[in-house]
């Protein structure tokens, strides 16, 4: 499994490979590049990764998700390099017997990937400026760069 891709993600192909005879539910999440952020017009994004660490960590997150939920398929792939508006930057696919596990596992995987995996986006704006941005800023809340606040925890409350 390739966890990182320098070329456009094959969302349809990944979904086609996500079918499983024992899975009654497949959830596909695609994180896509918006043309705006915080009131500024975005031209495109560029993603950088620490490739070997990112691949290992994504694999570990998927493995942990499989321990928590009965998943027949769990896939995550993240883009690197220049990603255009409307393109997919990250895809997570989860397939399970019923939809609740597929939704929960999908959310768990994307949340952890966003917070923990060494991948960084740089936003390039239409006015020619750029900004490394959207950092996980959980350390402001938790006081620890290794402690995160996850959406999937918020959902459970």
């Amino acid at each position: 499994m390739n966890y990182l891709s320098e070329s456009p993600l094959d969302v349809v192909g990944l979904l086609a490979a996500g079918h499983h005879p024992k899975a009654g539910a497949i959830v596909l999440f695609s994180g896509e590049v918006r043309d705006n952020n915080l009131g500024r017009e975005v031209a495109y994004l560029e993603y950088e990764a620490h490739a070997s660490m990112a691949a290992k960590l994504i694999a570990a997150i998927i493995e942990e998700a499989k321990q928590k939920w009965p998943l027949h398929i769990a896939v995550a792939q993240h883009r690197t390099g220049k990603v255009a508006v409307g393109e997919s930057a990250v895809v997570v696919i989860t397939a399970s017997p019923h939809r609740s596990e597929a939704y929960a596992a999908n959310r768990y995987i994307i949340d952890r990937v966003k917070h923990e995996v060494p991948i960084w986006k740089c936003e390039y704006f239409t006015d020619g400026t750029r900004k490394w941005g959207g950092n996980c800023n959980c350390h402001d809340i938790t006081g620890d760069a290794n402690q995160h606040v996850y959406e999937f925890d918020e959902v459970k409350k």
């Binding site: 660490m53 993240h78 990250v90 966003k114 923990e116 991948i119 960084w120």
Partner: peptide
């Protein structure tokens, strides 16, 4: 040694 800023993937 790699210096790893907070993640901003997704």
């Amino acid at each position: 040694v790699c210096v790893i800023p907070p993640s901003s993937g997704g």
